[in-house]
């Protein structure tokens, strides 16, 4: 009985949560002594929210910088978020909202089934069983898109001279890890080696802190092991940026208002008294 897989996953999740939390807290606690927003920049909070939102959801700077990077990067991130939603959305609890990927179909969740289904069902004429099947297919499609985007990013790293020259082992490692995770995931969906219901029960039980035995499937085991590796890897690598690095970045999150109000540097107090 593969209870150890659940335990390992708890361990990895703990490292992930504590590690990431610790890193974010560290950023937050490190003072920003001076006003350094990039100008032109918004002077009010609402403007700053727009600026951050633009970076977070549209990768605005990347769009300005390099469309051939923006395209795979943005597609990959959207696909990743959809896959995450899809994973939890497929469960009884907790209930998550749905999302759409372009014209492609959504990753559906139980909220849709409880509340939205009668409505969506009325619209599409689909039964609940068909709905579940559809979720599988759309999840698989999103996975395939993510794989394509990752391969694009990988090829770019290998082929574009400048990017290759700055790439480190960890840049390739992150890409390969993600590729393997999604490939094993899609393998289960499409090759049908796994009973999806059983996998769902495993994840649901795991989330509810009542771990159940993992399905005895080598690909599934591999998938979970790789996910553990990723979770542990994130806090210690460049992947910490998933904590929303742009949100913490003073060039982007500061209001451009030093000409309207005085900004007092948090660690300037000692200095000020030294020369006052």
């Amino acid at each position: 009985m593969q209870l150890w897989l659940s335990l390992l996953l708890y361990l990895a999740a703990a490292v992930f949560l504590i590690g990431l939390g610790w890193r974010l807290l560290n950023w937050l606690r490190t003072p920003v002594p001076l006003k350094i927003p990039l100008t032109p920049g918004p002077a009010d909070r609402r403007g700053v929210l727009w600026r951050l939102g633009g970076e977070l959801f549209a990768f605005r700077a990347l769009w300005r910088a390099d469309r051939s990077l923006w395209t795979p990067a943005w597609i990959f991130h959207v696909a990743l978020v959809l896959l995450l939603i899809g994973h939890f959305g497929g469960l009884e609890t907790p209930r998550f909202a749905c999302a759409t990927l372009g014209g492609m179909q959504a990753a559906f969740c139980r909220v849709a089934c409880d509340v939205g289904l009668p409505f969506a069902g009325g619209l599409t004429g689909m039964s609940m069983a068909q709905f579940g099947h559809f979720e599988d297919i759309s999840g698989g499609l999103v996975g395939a898109v993510a794989i394509a985007a990752l391969l694009w990013l990988l090829l770019r790293r290998l082929l574009a001279e400048r990017v290759r020259s700055i790439s480190t082992f960890s840049d390739y490692f992150a890409l390969l890890l993600l590729l393997l995770i999604i490939v094993t995931g899609n393998d289960m969906r499409f090759m049908g080696g796994l009973n999806i219901e059983q996998a769902r029960q495993f994840v649901a039980g795991w989330l509810a802190l009542h771990p159940t035995p993992a399905p005895a499937d080598p690909v599934f085991t591999m998938h979970i092991l790789l996910v553990c590796a990723l979770l542990i890897y994130i806090p210690f690598s460049k992947l910490v940026h998933i904590g929303g690095a742009a949100l913490f970045s003073p060039t982007l999150n500061q209001r451009n208002n030093p000409r309207q109000r005085r900004y007092t540097g948090p660690w300037d107090k000692t200095n000020a008294s030294a020369t006052a």
Binding site: T30, P31, D66, L69, I166, K238, V240, S249, W267
Partner: peptide
């Protein structure tokens, strides 16, 4: 400096080596 300048710490931590800045 790492403890007194968030810009330094954050920027050392978060660069993903995407290369967008390389030709700028």
């Amino acid at each position: 400096l790492l403890h007194t300048r968030r810009s330094l710490k954050l920027y050392l931590d978060t660069c993903v080596r995407c290369g967008a800045c390389t030709d700028k």
